[in-house]
Amino acid sequence: MDEECRNCPALCETRTQVVHGYGDVGADFLFVGERPTERADRLGVPFAGEGGSDGDGGLRRMLERLGLCDVTSPADAPGLENVYLTNLTRCRDPDREPTDEEIDNCDPYLNAEIRMINPEILVPVGERALRELGVEYTTTPVDDLALPDDHATRIRGRGFELVPMIEPSEQSDAETQAWLETFVELMASDYRQTKGRQER
């Protein structure tokens, strides 16, 4: 993972740092957002932070409630268990969403992480992540994938199952509870696929 990546000249001018994935490399659950939030850009960890309006704290609190994140761990080094966090793009422009070209430029990083982690469950966080992962990892036509309709649903994929979520900062309390209930049920089920994964 290139810490000084220069593939997107415009983003090189606006980022604080390159934010590659972070977490348990043996994880069953891989969360994918669109781009680093402001706090993640500053700290260097996807979805890092406490509270705030950019959604970082919301996802962390959800992971803590699921027992997947140590509540005492610091924002810049969250103690994650069975979870890996990443984004479609590694760099942030504070004023705009990433372009299709920028997402394509980062695709090799994401693909490398997915191959390395070999998760069972992909969690697209937000509409853009759902559409991008849907194209590659499901047989569902991408036009049939959308939030909020697919929030907290289980979508069968190609060797993976997807459990999309609305951006945490945009979720109502009811939507957060619905997603947590779906994920608790999933964690209690036999969710592992038969795709030749190696024993860890």
Rank of each mutant, 00 (worst) to 15 (best):
Leu30Val: 13
Phe31Cys: 04
Phe31Thr: 06
Val32Met: 05
Arg35His: 07
Arg35Cys: 11
Pro36Ala: 12
Thr37Asn: 14
Thr37Leu: 11
Glu38Pro: 05
Glu38Gln: 15
Glu38Val: 11
Ala40Asn: 14
Asp41Gly: 15
Asp41His: 11
Asp41Val: 07
Leu43Trp: 11
Gly44Met: 10
Val45Phe: 07
Pro46Glu: 01
Gly49Asp: 14
Gly49Cys: 10
Gly49Glu: 13
Gly52Phe: 12
Ser53Met: 14
Asp54Pro: 08
Gly55Thr: 09
Gly55Asn: 04
Gly57Asp: 10
Gly58Phe: 12
Leu59Asp: 08
Leu59Lys: 08
Arg60Met: 07
Arg61Pro: 01
Arg61Val: 03
Leu63Cys: 14
Leu63Met: 15
Leu63Asp: 15
Arg65Tyr: 10
Leu66Gln: 03
Leu68Tyr: 06
Leu68Trp: 02
Asp70Tyr: 05
Ser73Gln: 00
Pro74Asn: 03
Ala75Asn: 06
Ala75Cys: 01
Ala77Val: 10
Pro78Tyr: 01
Leu80His: 05
Leu80Lys: 03
Glu81Ser: 09
Asn82Ile: 05
Val83Ser: 01
Val83Asn: 05
Val83Gln: 00
Leu85Thr: 02
Thr86Asn: 06
Thr86Ser: 12
Thr89Pro: 06
Thr89Phe: 08
Arg90Thr: 09
Asp93Trp: 00
Asp95Cys: 03
Asp95Phe: 05
Glu97His: 02
Glu97Gln: 01
Asp100Pro: 12
Glu101Arg: 09
Glu101His: 07
Glu101Ser: 06
Ile103Gln: 03
Asn105Val: 12
Asn105Gln: 14
Asp107Ala: 14
Pro108Gly: 14
Pro108Ile: 10
Tyr109Cys: 12
Ala112Gln: 15
Ala112Pro: 10
Glu113Trp: 03
Arg115Met: 10
Arg115Thr: 09
Ile117Cys: 15
Asn118Ala: 15
Asn118Pro: 14
Pro119Ile: 01
Pro119Thr: 02
Pro119Leu: 05
Glu120Phe: 12
Leu122His: 03
Leu122Tyr: 00
Val123Phe: 12
Val125Ser: 01
Gly126Lys: 00
Gly126Met: 02
Glu127Gly: 09
Arg128Cys: 08
Leu130Glu: 04
Leu130Asn: 01
Arg131Asp: 00
Arg131Pro: 02
Glu132Gln: 11
Glu132Ala: 13
Glu132Asn: 14
Leu133Glu: 11
Val135Trp: 02
Val135Ala: 03
Glu136Asn: 10
Tyr137Ala: 12
Thr138Ser: 07
Thr138Met: 04
Thr140Ile: 01
Thr140Gln: 02
Pro141Val: 02
Pro141Ala: 03
Val142Asp: 09
Asp143Ser: 09
Leu147Met: 06
Leu147Asp: 05
Leu147Asn: 07
Pro148His: 04
Pro148Glu: 06
Asp149His: 06
Asp149Tyr: 01
His151Val: 06
Thr153Ala: 08
Ile155Pro: 04
Gly157Leu: 14
Arg158Ala: 09
Arg158His: 11
Gly159Tyr: 12
Phe160Tyr: 15
Phe160Gly: 07
Leu162Arg: 13
Leu162Ser: 12
Pro164Asp: 08
Met165Ser: 11
Ile166Phe: 10
Ile166Cys: 10
Glu167Asp: 15
Glu167Val: 09
Glu167Asn: 14
Ala174Trp: 10
Ala174Phe: 09
Glu175Asn: 00
Thr176His: 13
